[in-house]
Design a protein around this nucleic acid. Structure first.
Length: 161
DNA sequence: TAACATTCCGCGC
DNA sequence: GCGCGGAATGTTA
């Protein structure tokens, strides 16, 4: 497995332990509580851990983080990276549709592809893929489990149904 | 080439 | 209005 190069460190939150994966460059991966891989390179700490933890806790308590930890997005294709950058611009409590993201990228036809890029996002929560909804106020999908998407939106003060 | 976390349009209820 | 089916669409492995 190629993600053996990642150093994994648990990040405790009031929602349970997330698992951060660091490459040499920065934060490269984040897993929800209960969805951790079986085998991984566990470490007890990391230089970027404090930064990640601070950022994560801000978001999980419904507040906009003042800055993001260093991230390693090199795992994604150029298109995916531009989609992720676009999502990072979405402020706390605000949402876009897959279509709007595609338009922001001057690629209005790539709606479907934007959906794929969201699913390929290695760092959920910090890269707010949960703030991307389908057209017509529909919820869309979420690869780590739709419950998380609802949960995160609720934390940000957005009610559904 | 076959997926897809989409969207739009046209039905039938 | 809502739901379902089908088609068009860009990117990816």
């Amino acid at each position: 497995m190629e993600q053996d190069r990642l150093v994994r460190v648990p990040v405790d939150t009031h929602l349970g332990p997330f698992l951060a994966g660091f490459s040499a460059t920065g934060l490269a991966d984040l897993d929800f509580p209960g969805r951790h891989p079986d085998n991984f390179n566990r470490a007890k700490s990391h230089p970027l851990l404090a930064s990640v933890k601070r950022c994560l806790k801000k978001i999980l308590s419904g507040r906009q983080p003042e800055q993001f930890p260093e991230m390693d997005l090199s795992a994604g294709t150029p298109f995916q990276q531009s989609v992720w950058q676009e999502m990072l611009k979405i402020p706390m409590g605000q949402t876009l549709t897959y279509g709007e993201i595609a338009e922001n990228l001057n690629n209005p036809g790539a709606v479907r592809a934007v959906g794929m890029a969201c699913g390929a996002n290695p760092i959920p929560v910090i890269i707010p893929c949960h703030r991307v909804l389908a057209a017509g106020g529909k919820i869309g999908g979420f690869s780590s489990g739709l419950e998380w998407k609802y949960q995160l939106l609720k934390i940000e003060g957005l009610a559904f149904l």
